Simulated assay, not measured.
Amino acid sequence: MVLKIVFAVVIVVLIARMFKSQINRGQQILLLMQQLGFQSLGETLPADFPIAETSLAERIGVGLIGAGVRGRHEVVFFDCVFRGARIGVAQTVIAVRGGEECFPTVRADRTMKLESAGGWTMAYRHRKSLTAQEIQVLIMAVPA
């Protein structure tokens, strides 16, 4: 009986930490948007963003959408949520209206994937969220 209670407490603590971590990440990303001069689009991608033409079409939701300009390139970043075994799995996407040359650092990073559609190029780690710092590094690497 005691073992069941301890197990339940451990599960509750782990879930609470997970939610706190997600809240902190959301706050950090909103702060990043301010620092970059980007605007928060809530949960609505730009109307001309070609998400249906990509591997991201199977998503079950999007959120934490930021949009702005870096140099002469329009930039959008967001989290996609995909169905997981038991819960949704988030993946952060950084998209630039332009070609693969807009992501010079991604080509050297084997953990990142590039995908193009409708004049946009997207960079992401398959089924992985990026930290606010990782998002900032990718956006700042877009040629000005």
Rank of each mutant, 00 (worst) to 15 (best):
V81W: 13
L64F: 14
L114C: 07
V10E: 09
L56Y: 07
L114F: 06
R107L: 11
L56P: 00
S55A: 07
T121G: 13
R83Q: 13
Q34F: 04
V81T: 15
D109E: 05
V10I: 15
M122A: 10
A141E: 09
P143M: 10
Q28T: 09
K113Y: 05
I23L: 14
D109C: 02
F77M: 10
V13Q: 04
V81Q: 14
L56C: 03
Q136L: 12
G66F: 02
S21G: 13
K4R: 13
L36S: 02
G42K: 09
Q39F: 02
L14Y: 06
R110W: 05
E74Y: 05
V81C: 09
G61N: 03
V12I: 14
L30F: 05
F7Q: 08
G61D: 02
A16I: 13
G63R: 10
L30Q: 13
I87M: 07
I87F: 11
E134H: 06
C102P: 06
V137G: 03
R125H: 03
L14Q: 11
S55T: 07
R25Y: 04
E43Y: 05
T131H: 11
T54V: 05
F49L: 01
F7A: 10
V93Q: 00
Q22A: 15
A123I: 03
P143N: 12
M33S: 03
K113C: 04
T111A: 03
T92H: 00
T105G: 04
A8P: 07
I11N: 06
L3I: 09
K113S: 06
L45I: 01
A117C: 11
M122N: 09
F82R: 00
I94N: 07
D79Y: 00
L138R: 11
G66A: 01
R107H: 13
G98E: 10
R59H: 15
Q91N: 03
T92G: 00
I65G: 04
Q22P: 03
M33I: 01
V9I: 14
M140R: 13
I11Q: 09
M1Q: 08
L138F: 07
Q22I: 11
F82A: 00
T131C: 10
E100G: 04
R86V: 11
R70F: 10
V76K: 04
V12W: 09
L45P: 00
I15A: 14
M112R: 01
E43A: 12
T131F: 08
D48K: 07
K128M: 09
T44C: 05
G84M: 00
R127A: 02
A47F: 06
V96I: 04
H73R: 15
E101Y: 06
L31A: 12
R107Y: 09
L41A: 13
T111F: 00
F77R: 00
S116T: 12
I11E: 08
F7D: 10
A57H: 04
I23Y: 10
G63A: 12
Q91S: 03
V12A: 14
H73N: 15
R110Q: 09
T44Q: 09
R25L: 15
K128C: 04
G119V: 05
Y124N: 01
K4L: 11
R72P: 12
G71H: 08
L138N: 08
K113N: 05
M1T: 12
A108Q: 07
L30H: 13
R125A: 08
F7I: 08
L32Y: 01
S116A: 15
I11Y: 06
A123Y: 02
I60N: 15
R83T: 08
T54Q: 01
A141V: 01
